[in-house]
Every structure is written in C-alpha cells, then in structure tokens.
Computed example of a mutant assay.
Amino acid sequence: MKNKFWAVLLAAGSLVYTGCGNKSGDAPTDTPTSGKVKISVDESFKPIIETQVSTFEGIYKRADVEAVYKPEGDVIKDMLNDSIRVIVLSRKLTPEEEAVIEKKKRIPRITKIAIDAVAVIVNRSNPDSLLTLDELKSIFGGKTKSWKQLNKDSKLKDITIVFDNNNSGTARFVKDSLIADHKLPSNTFAAESHAALIDYVEKNENALGVIGVNWISDFDDSTVVGFQNRIKVVGISAEPLPRTTESYYQPYQAYIAQGTYPLRRYLYIISTEGRAGLGTGFASYVAGDKGQRIILKSGLVPATMPVRVIGIQ
C-alpha cells in the first residue's frame, strides 16, 4: 500500500507541477523529477545512497538531489527542526519524535527500502573470526575485555571496540540490541569515519570493528574489494554452543534474506514533504523496480521486491 501511495503521489505531482506555473514567489518549484532537494542520510549508508542518487540524476537530468551524510542523531535533528524533510536511516521514528513533527502539522511517510545488516570485523591476523551472539553481548557489555577470555591460547591482548561514530546508527543498533544497559564500555573507540575505522582494524590486531555491511558487500565495487582484502569479517552464530562451524554466518546477502545472520536491521526513507516534490520522487524511485535492483546488486536485500535464494551443493 505504501508503494501504491508513492506511485499515485508521483503521478499526481507530475500533472500538477507540469501543468501549472509558479504563481507565488514562495511556492515550491520542484516536481517529483526536477528541481533541487536536500536529503539527510545516516553516513552508514553512504555507498548505497550515493549510487541511488547518481542513477536517479542520470535518468532525470533536471533533478538535483543533494545528499548530506551525518551520524544518525544529527539526521534526526534535521527532521525535527524542519530544516530537512527527507531522511534515510535504519530505524523508524519514536512516538516522541512523531509528536514533535505532528506539532509542525506534518505527517511522516515511512518507506522501508532494504534489509541491511551490521558487520563485525577484525584484524586479518586474528584467529578468532567466529563468535557467538552471547560472546558479542559479553564483549559489548564490558564483561569480556580480552581475547584470552574467548580463547585461552590467544596471543592477543585487550579488545578495542571501534565504531565509526559513537552517535551513529550502527552504535545505536548495538546499544539497543546487544547491551543490557544501553551503554558502550570504556574500551570503545570512535574512528570518526568508516575509512578510518577500517584503517584502524587493519593496523591493530586487538581491534574489533562494527560497520554497516553496505561498506563491504558490493563485490563489483573496487573500493569494497579493497576493504575486504584488508580486514576479516566475523562469522556469528545465534546458538549459545554451536556444534560446527556451519552454525556461524557472515553477512552475505542470502543469509540476511533468510534471517540466519542475526545482526539484521531495516533501512527506511522518511519524508514529511506533504506534497509531490523531488524528495517524494526520489523515495518513489528507490522503492521502485530500478532502485530495488540497485539495492540487490549492492549486496543488501530489497524490501519491496522478491528475492530468490538458490542453494548450491
């Protein structure tokens, strides 16, 4: 129904704005396929949204979508203070945030565009590349502080947890999903960017990094392949006592789609435009066939189109 809403709104807006001129100096001049709009995006999703924006602008030559990439907390602030009306992030709005928006007489339209995941990465020399969900909870909860607690034969020392940003959507996901008191432990470090995070993990054998999977999932992207060659992606098991290594899953597309990889999350576009503007047009495009094919290619799971998972023996 949400996709039908976007399609109808897109078509209606095209008729209205191509058929009418700008009669008022204050009236918006953008349409679903032309004009200029600024959107605020959780920086965890920069690779996939950059691709979506460039492809959208390639199709609609008169469209200018300016994507600003920020930590999740700053993205939410942009919408709450009404400075930006289209945002991309990995959670829905809270009831308190919705109340703030409704006081401004705006209605948020939420479109799920992908199933994403959080990846755990370690140094390539680290032999402990398989962890259970319980072990991760112990690490992020501050109970497990050294690699020797996980493996008594390990030659590694104290664990250093590395996020892109302590205010990021990835950090918030870990706090909400894996930490009982929602507080990161004292051995947590913020690298301030995804590239810096990967650099740190590559150079520090004791590091354990947490990153959005779209930074390492598109194997047709030479930058992603370069990142993959510099770090090791951890396999995670939801079983407390896995019997075999086959119980551990890396954040591959098939495992995300099947739900066997445990650290999954959703990706949303939230709009308060209230009219058929360029932001609405962009959201409709990403949720449509072409935008969903880009998500499929990137290694994430499309939210609005079926995905076939083929087993090979």
Rank of each mutant, 00 (worst) to 15 (best):
G58E: 11
S125R: 14
T55M: 03
K70D: 08
E57K: 00
F282G: 04
I236W: 05
S44G: 14
I59D: 04
D164P: 00
E192I: 00
E246N: 13
M79A: 08
I76A: 05
R293Q: 15
N22H: 12
D199G: 02
R265D: 12
A191C: 04
K70F: 06
R230E: 12
I159D: 08
A283Y: 02
S83Y: 06
I39K: 01
V86H: 03
T31W: 01
D82E: 13
P302Y: 05
A276I: 01
S222D: 09
V174Y: 00
V65A: 00
P127Q: 12
P32H: 01
A238E: 15
L130Y: 14
A254F: 10
D218Y: 02
D153M: 08
S186Y: 06
S14D: 14
F163K: 00
S177F: 02
Y266R: 10
A196I: 00
R91W: 11
P185A: 06
G58D: 14
Y266W: 12
K148P: 12
P251Q: 12
I101Y: 07
S168E: 01
V37T: 08
R293M: 13
D289Q: 12
S83C: 04
D221H: 01
R124D: 14
E96H: 09
P240T: 11
I87L: 03
P262D: 11
L300I: 07
K77L: 07
I121R: 09
E57G: 01
T245F: 10
T245C: 05
V307D: 10
T304M: 07
L278T: 04
T111N: 10
P47H: 03
T18W: 03
G209P: 03
S24E: 14
W147R: 11
Y17Q: 00
F45Q: 04
G13T: 06
